[in-house]
């Protein structure tokens, strides 16, 4: 069976959920061979094996942390040369997309980004994508070279599928461009203890209607009552009420949770681009004409300062 390279997104050995979803998709088109780089790479093997990785290629070097993107491209290319895979799958993070794109140029392949589903086809893997703020669904293939495909979080279930997952050291030689962009400082983002926005099953977002940083507490309380991640519209982010890392939309994160709750968000096209594929959508807005209501499964026309706290209290009461 053909091998499929899966690029592993992990933090010091802790594999992030989208990578496990990639393994599910990879198994539909071949045998997953994982590539894990940087500090803690070896520690990823156990969980990758549980989810279907037949092999885990690992490499660690200071270059991965000290220089931007290119050292990882060199390593992924080394894995590509070693394995000659049928396809290369990479998580659709900002960095993942850049790594995948540069690899594609080097190996003379086409690239598909932000796939939301993947299946085997007669002429190679077929990727499903959303276009124009998710108002269209397209199916496409890579028609030149080995398909390089980046996949969005929440695109497939995580499935247990025990495999060997033997760790093998990957030999990497860095090219001249690897040290081109130096990372001279790094401030890790503080953990909020809440789920990762793109990976969360429920997202609770606030917009301009929240009217002040101090009021975001009621959005957070609702989120916590549901074990949800917190999102924000660009208007709320631009006003400085919530960090940009939480922005949902075209220039923020694209989310596809089971449940999306929008409070005080009008539903501009750029916001919809980042949340329209959510399974169930709920909105609270005092303007009955707000475009967000075109998307909802359930909407409450009302003042969020009355509705949200009541909702939170009711959820807490029901959960006991």
């Amino acid at each position: 069976m053909a091998e499929v390279l899966v690029y592993v997104d992990h933090v010091d050995g802790a594999v992030r959920k989208p990578t496990l979803e990639l393994l599910t998709l990879a198994r539909r088109i071949g045998e997953p061979v994982a590539v894990a780089l940087g500090a803690g790479a070896d520690a990823t093997a156990a969980v990758l094996a549980e989810h279907g990785a037949v092999k885990v290629l690992t490499a660690d070097a200071p270059e991965f942390a000290e220089y931007l993107v290119v050292p990882k491209v060199d390593a992924l290319q080394a894995a590509y040369d070693a394995v000659s895979p049928a396809a290369v799958l990479v998580p659709s993070s900002a960095e993942g997309k850049e790594i995948a794109a540069r690899l594609a140029v080097r190996i003379g392949s086409g690239i598909i980004t932000d796939a939301v589903d993947l299946e085997a086809g007669d002429e190679g893997p077929v990727a499903t994508q959303s276009a124009f703020a998710a108002s269209f669904t397209t199916k496409s293939r890579v028609s030149k070279g080995t398909p390089v495909i980046t996949v969005k979080p929440n695109s497939a279930p995580v499935e247990a599928a025990p495999a060997a997952g033997a760790v093998e050291a990957l030999a990497v030689t860095f090219g001249a461009l690897a040290t081109g962009t130096k990372v001279t400082g790094r401030t890790p983002r503080e953990s909020t203890g809440r789920p990762e926005l793109t990976e969360a099953a429920i997202v609770v977002s606030g917009g301009r209607g929240v009217n002040g940083a101090e009021n975001f507490g009621i959005i957070e309380e609702l989120a916590d009552s549901l074990g949800a991640a917190v999102g924000a519209s660009r208007a709320a982010v631009d006003a400085g009420w919530y960090p940009h890392t939480n922005q949902v939309g075209q220039t923020g994160k694209s989310v596809s949770p089971q449940l999306y709750i929008a409070s005080g968000i009008s539903g501009a096209i750029q916001h919809r681009a980042g949340m329209q594929t959510s399974k169930t959508i709920v909105a609270i807005n005092k303007d009955a004409e707000a475009p967000i209501f075109d998307l909802v499964d359930y909407g409450v026309v009302g003042d969020l300062f009355a509705v949200v706290p009541q909702l939170t209290a009711e959820i807490k009461a029901r959960k006991g």
């Binding site: 409450v300 009355a306 949200v308």
Partner: peptide, 12 residues
């Protein structure tokens, strides 16, 4: 979807 107007019970 279903859209309701809050008349005091919207959250519930």
């Amino acid at each position: 979807g279903t859209i309701v107007k809050d008349e005091g019970e919207g959250g519930k």
